[in-house]
């Protein structure tokens, strides 16, 4: 959280000008849409009569009703304590999102039938491809960061060439280049290892930069103190510098992990049966694309939420030595 001022400002959503502006904007937005064909308009029938023929008055009435509900909702939430506010807003946004999915009229039995396979095959593959790639990428990142910070010309040149190249090419292209290009050199490589290799190399390059900046953020005095006690380079790195760099490294690395989880969908183009691949193919036969895509979307999101939770746990763990 930002560093909070002790002077309490008036709650923004209770300021008259803000409430009025919000009301006006919502009214105009919903007047701009023609909602006369929706269920909400049917509910308004006692006020506006036949929705289809209610014209501008109907639109205004519908927009007005929505604006009143919206504004009232926001103002009321403004009174709640912080935790409750966060919970309610989350819930409402989630409901709106679900309502959006509802408009596709998804066939639940179809989802129920395909979901087990989507999870056992798709999620399992996605998870193990991402997990292995994350581990390899982290190892590459530590080595790359040390190389980029070293005085060794070869190490620096190799590491900077590597980060430049793999950050400079689209991941999709790397996937193709490795899967289709390596056989040209005589290495015939399966789709799964090719995908893992592409993901590890690409994310290793990004994470190299994260690790490098994390290591550089540690005060020079820590190196001097370690050195003055006779610690060697490896010992200093492992026991003094990296443990302190981790709290700096973890938030952006968590980002990378989440991003990797979703970018693992790119290996579907070379025929790996992971979540995205199955989401596209399972619904194809019966043209029920949306069912599978939305299921996969929700699964991706839930997996990301798990990673977010893990990340915040780790951050809290490393926050200990900073607490007074």
């Amino acid at each position: 959280m930002l560093y909070q001022d002790t002077v309490e400002a008036e709650v923004l959503v209770h300021k008259p000008w803000f409430v009025a502006t919000m009301f006006g904007v919502v009214l105009l937005v919903f007047m701009a849409f023609n909602l006369s064909g929706t269920g909400f308009a049917e509910l308004m029938r006692p006020v506006i009569g036949e929705p289809q023929t209610s014209g501008i008055y109907g639109r205004f009435a519908i927009g007005f009703a929505i604006a009143v509900m919206f504004t009232l909702n926001v103002v009321l939430i403004g009174f709640a304590p912080l935790k409750l506010q966060i919970g309610i807003v989350w819930l409402e946004l989630l409901l709106l999102f679900m309502a959006f999915f509802e408009t596709f009229h998804l066939s639940l039995p179809f989802i129920g039938e395909k979901l087990p396979f989507l999870i056992t095959q798709g999620v399992a593959t996605t998870l193990y491809v991402s997990a292995i790639s994350i581990v390899i990428a982290s190892v590459i990142a530590v080595a790359g960061a040390v190389a980029k910070l070293s005085n060794n010309g070869f190490a620096y040149a190799i590491a900077s060439f590597y980060t430049s190249l793999f950050r400079g090419l689209p991941l999709l292209m790397q996937v193709y280049l490795i899967y289709l290009g390596l056989p040209q050199l005589g290495f015939v490589i399966n789709a799964v290892p090719a995908g893992i290799l592409a993901l590890s190399l690409c994310y290793g390059a990004y994470m190299t930069e994260i690790f490098r900046s994390g290591i550089q953020s540690i005060d020079r005095g820590q190196w001097e103190a370690s050195r003055s006690m006779g610690f060697g380079f490896a010992l200093t790195m492992r026991r003094i510098i990296l443990p302190q760099a981790l709290p700096v490294i973890i938030p952006p690395t968590g980002n990378q992990f989440i991003s990797m989880l979703k970018d693992s969908s790119l290996v579907s183009v070379i025929g790996v049966w992971e979540l995205m691949f199955l989401a596209r193919t399972l619904g194809q036969k019966t043209f029920q694309h949306m069912e599978m895509l939305i299921s996969a979307a929700i699964i991706y999101w839930m997996l990301s939420i798990c990673l977010e939770l893990i990340q915040s746990r780790i951050e809290r763990h490393y926050g200990r030595s900073k607490m007074r």
Binding site: D219, G221, Q222, E224, A225, R227, S228, M229, G230, F231, G232, I240, P243, Q244, S321, K322
Partner: peptide, 20 residues
């Protein structure tokens, strides 16, 4: 150098304790 350094103690202006 490690042997020499471990026989020479040093105290710094900014302490440089290991905060973790």
């Amino acid at each position: 150098v490690a042997a020499v350094r471990s026989n020479v103690g040093m105290v710094f202006q900014h302490f440089n304790l290991f905060p973790h």
